[in-house]
Amino acid sequence: MSCIKNGFETLKGKNEKALVGFVTAGDPDFDRSVEIVRAMCDGGMDVLELGIPFSDPTADGPVIQRSSQRALKSGMSLVRVLEMVKIVRGFTSIPIVLFGYYNPIFRYGGKAFCQDSLAAGTDGVLIVDLPPEESAELTSQWEGADFDFIRLVAPTTGPDRMKQIADEASGFIYLVSMTGVTGSQGLDSSKVGAVIAPLKAVTDLPVCVGFGISTPDHVKAVAMVSDGVVVGSAFERLIEENLENPGLCGMVREYTQSLKDATKI
């Protein structure tokens, strides 16, 4: 059983839903990014989604765009992201999923990426711009590796396609809560249930919901109907607003705790 699946099983036993936290690796710089992730772990985060910074993040809103730019400016690269995973793996056993765009991974080499990611302590990857139509060129290089390729389902995904995606998925499925880029406003958590039902009907995998979730109330509402809740832009906003604040890590830990508490039902 993959580490990711195992993690969700354990939470189920405790009547909790997963808090999936996203930050861009290397934002605002390598060392502080490690400390931010440590604070998220201390705050009770269940799954880490670590963003691979990319120059042209076309599915991300301004907050994550800027986080990517800060990370790149500080000298971050995919090689450095994997170095960071090694350090993070030294202090936590929660699942670590890389999150990014295809070009840096394509340039790194699909097979080497899988091997090096596993060696560093990563459990899977989600690639925003690699839909099922194109993903075989990458995943076919991973035969036999215990490395999850997390797939996305969007509000625009129809039932047939949903089933097709679910059949190929592993780890968990990431359900996008609304049409739009990350960090969009206007989450209608009452509608999430309606989107999640047809997906749950075609998969046994855990379903995590992301996009537009930033408060404990959002988390609570979405956790009622899903297996996990992804918070990303809200962490990045907190980082951005406190770049020079020595208390940043404490704030991140407290914020994580407040979100985590909302996943306990």
């Binding site: 925003v128 839909p131 625009t156 996008v176």
Partner: peptide
């Protein structure tokens, strides 16, 4: 049929756009 020109082309886009 999949929009490939040999090793090039394709549809490398977010799932939200794929149905469109």
């Amino acid at each position: 049929a999949r929009g490939h020109y040999g090793a090039f082309g394709g549809r490398y886009i977010a799932e939200t756009l794929m149905p469109a």
